[in-house]
Nucleic acid binder design. Structure first.
Lengths: 360, 360
DNA sequence: CGAATCGATCGAATCGATTCGAGAACGACT
DNA sequence: AGTCGTTCTCGAATCGATTCGATCGATTCG
């Protein structure tokens, strides 16, 4: 509290308290409603009056209508929450997420909406329901969000989910994760690979590493990861592998060491992100295993990674920015009272130089 | 507007309108004030009453107090704005920024505050003043923000600036940019280098590339970049170079080609970020110039970059996460009515294997 | 047994603006 | 001159909750 705080009321009208629209109106000699019109521009106000109001505002050092009050009255705050499953640092490590966010921010920014970064409940951050949001975007979130989604619906807050388990009253922006992965798997199959392993994204909220087991898959809450596993199994029904703790080159390296160090090392690896794929390649390099001659590696995302040279990943290029954009425009439509259709995006399989025929 | 919207009033009390605290209180047979107490937990409320209120809330499908109304009444929205100079994609491309943001989010999250991403005014995004924010963090922003800062002060919104031109009533979280760069320059000087060039971060809001000229430096609005240039000139008064359009390996590559292709190529380069430094190294590799034998390169930030191997950059390690944390805790204190002291961080000069003696 | 105390609940004011319908002033048209 | 139509301004209601002080019983203390 500042020095003059206690005098808020005692000091009369001209105390240190921040001025409000009423004070400005009073000084200008007009009613509050007119002053409001003068600021918002809606409704007819004579130039003379507007000038008077603006002058009064300047004199009182009034910075314009309080956004908090506007939010209440209008029922809109201009803020859209974005819930990402990881900590910021984790989420932003993958260029894919950043690209997606960029598309989202771009679309929302155009509509005058701001992006509020939220983490999943329980992370200690804002409770996901106490923030004044107009809408929410769920990004690759676990299915455990059901409860929160219900809470949001009670508030009448529309929800858009990018790559998530279908939920009632949640607009889906999807990617052909399963199909795409199956395509990559088929590619490996055609090249003659039979010993193929997966390096997956985290399956649990706590991101533990470890072998990919049936139990873990069944218990998993990570939609995207599970879909991609399904896609791989459409081609290699018994495929196994390891689970990484995140999407990074480092994690890929760890996973790669694990896979390549075992007795019957695979001849091909399906990594669930380009960063992981690059890490696997690094692990191969460490062991003197040549890519793609002795080991084929496919990634996912199609992001351009610094330091991948001379490799050009065989990967699934997904329209990340477009995905974000689609989510953004869906939100804008939702807020306009329209009912946009769900969007589904497809990935393009791009063959690089990290896959080749299986060694006979 | 939804189907039942027009019936909001006509339908009587039980229409499709979203329930509010008053409705819940009425159904529970208590006053609104008691219902409020029951939800907030402040003040004494008997268990029986609380149960009644909660039951009524459930029956009405009431999701708890409206954050917008709370914001107004409490004068707090729980939202902190973060203004970054670039587009999201630009800003998040540099791990440095992400690390900083992570520290910030961590500290703010603990205090129950959310992070609202904003871009500089004029970018079309939220007007930086119409969002209901409790405080604002300026990150490496241009000096052109003066006007906005004034607007924020009018609203009584505290402002913290990370590495920015000192401004009145703005709490500074600083880094020894000048000093640190001078240290690196001295290192090169001691190694015998005389033909040294700079690769700087953008100097103007529009991020044009080009030669580093006196006019540009003088007209520059980028604080960090300018400070670092000053540091370099403390050792090499006549140092020139090129300006990059952002902080990325790609930009460093472009800048490096420019520098190394010219007639009297430098024997050492001071890059203003690690990403730029790595790009310069790439440019050298392209031309068959050996690092560090024929070209020394120093960076700034000390972030671990994938793909830098086998090089370990000679660079200035700055405490990025800590910087963000400091800004976060400063904000928390500011909001608590305290007056935290400005913070200044120092970078540590780390010698890697990208600098060596000048060729005689 | 009267008084002080404590716990639970309620009333009313307040946060700061927006917006709708009504009213006033004024020029134009028949 | 009277009526109609503009244009500008105002009053009052409203958005949804929080919070201070007052009230009212019931319990406990002297």
């Amino acid at each position: 509290m500042e020095a003059g705080a206690s005098a808020t009321r005692a000091g009369g009208k001209n105390s240190a308290a921040r001025p409000n629209l009423a004070a400005v109106a009073a000084l200008a000699g007009v009613s509050a409603s007119t002053a409001s019109l003068a600021f918002s521009g809606a409704g007819p106000v004579s130039d003379a009056t507007r000038a008077k109001v603006l002058a009064a505002a300047e004199q009182l050092n009034y910075g314009g209508p309080d956004p908090r009050a506007q939010s209440l009255r209008r029922g809109r705050s201009g803020i859209v929450g974005v819930v990402m499953e990881d900590r910021l640092r984790e989420a932003f490590r993958d260029p894919m997420n950043v690209a997606m966010l960029d598309g989202l921010a771009d679309e929302l920014g155009t509509a005058g909406l701001g992006l509020l970064l939220l983490t999943e409940p329980g992370s200690g951050g804002p409770e996901l329901s106490l923030a004044p949001m107009d809408a929410v975007v769920l990004v690759g979130c676990s299915t455990q969000l059901d409860r929160s989604v219900v809470a949001l619906h009670q508030r009448g807050i529309p929800v858009v989910a990018i790559e998530a388990e279908p939920m009632v009253d949640v607009l889906a922006v999807d990617l052909d994760n399963r199909d795409a992965t199956a395509r990559a798997a088929r590619h490996l199959h055609e090249l003659g690979h039979t010993r193929v392993a997966l390096v997956t994204l985290p399956l649990e909220p706590t991101h533990p590493r470890g072998a990919l087991t049936e139990e873990r898959i069944a218990a998993s809450t990570a939609f995207t990861s599970r879909e991609r596993i399904r896609g791989a199994r459409d081609v290699f029904p018994a495929i196994g592998g390891v689970v990484a703790a995140g999407s990074s080159v480092e994690e890929g390296l760890i996973a790669g060491r694990e896979l390549l160090g075992s007795g019957d090392a695979p001849t091909a690896v399906i990594a669930q992100s380009d960063l992981l794929a690059l890490g696997v390649i690094r692990a191969a390099q460490e062991r003197g295993i040549r890519v793609p001659e002795e080991l084929s590696v496919v990634g996912f995302d199609g992001v351009r990674i610094e330091g991948a040279a001379p490799y050009e990943l065989t990967t699934l290029v997904q329209p990340a920015v477009e995905k974000g954009r689609a989510a953004g425009s869906a939100i804008v439509e939702l807020l306009a009272g329209q009912t946009p259709a769900p969007r589904a995006f497809t990935s393009e399989f791009r063959v690089g130089n990290t896959t080749g025929p299986a060694i006979s």
